[in-house]
């Protein structure tokens, strides 16, 4: 039985209020029409299914009805963090101890800068 912190309501609520929706951070292919069968099959059906740290999508179904992410250990069931859509996790299989808040923030800035620099017509 989970006691889950909804990052939007900013409250701990019972598992009954939530629904799990599978693996998080699955990006829909930019141009589905040009996908091969292998790429499209991988997007639809193939999953990490790890025994250990897993990022998953949940919805606060009978609460605020918003989607958010949970980082959870699929063997011990320990919830390491919950975070909003669009945010990046602190904990991962590579960083089981968790990255610091500053590192995550710095990475976000760097990623956004990279996206801007990658746009056409922008000089670095």
């Amino acid at each position: 039985m989970f006691y889950i912190h909804c990052p939007y309501c900013d409250e701990y609520r019972d598992e009954e209020e939530f629904h799990p929706k599978g693996q998080a951070h699955i990006a829909r292919p930019e141009d589905p029409e040009s996908c091969t069968d292998d790429q499209w099959g991988a997007y639809l059906f193939f999953r990490d299914n790890p025994r250990g740290i897993h990022h998953e999508l949940w919805v606060h179904a009978i609460g605020c009805r918003k989607f958010f992410n949970i980082t959870r250990n699929s063997a011990s069931y320990e919830i390491l963090e919950t975070y909003r859509m669009g945010e990046q996790p602190r904990f991962s299989a590579e960083h089981p101890e968790g990255k610091s808040v500053e590192t995550v923030a710095a990475e976000k800035v760097a990623a956004e800068a990279g996206m801007v620099a990658g746009q056409e017509g922008v000089k670095a």
């Binding site: 039985m1 989970f2 598992e15 009954e16 629904h19 799990p20 693996q23 299914n49 025994r51 897993h54 998953e56 959870r72 699929s74 063997a75 011990s76 069931y77």
Partner: peptide
């Protein structure tokens, strides 16, 4: 089944 991924060989009371 419980809807979430799990290897714990246990589920929830609900």
């Amino acid at each position: 089944i419980n809807g979430y991924l799990g290897y714990g060989q246990r589920g929830s009371y609900t």
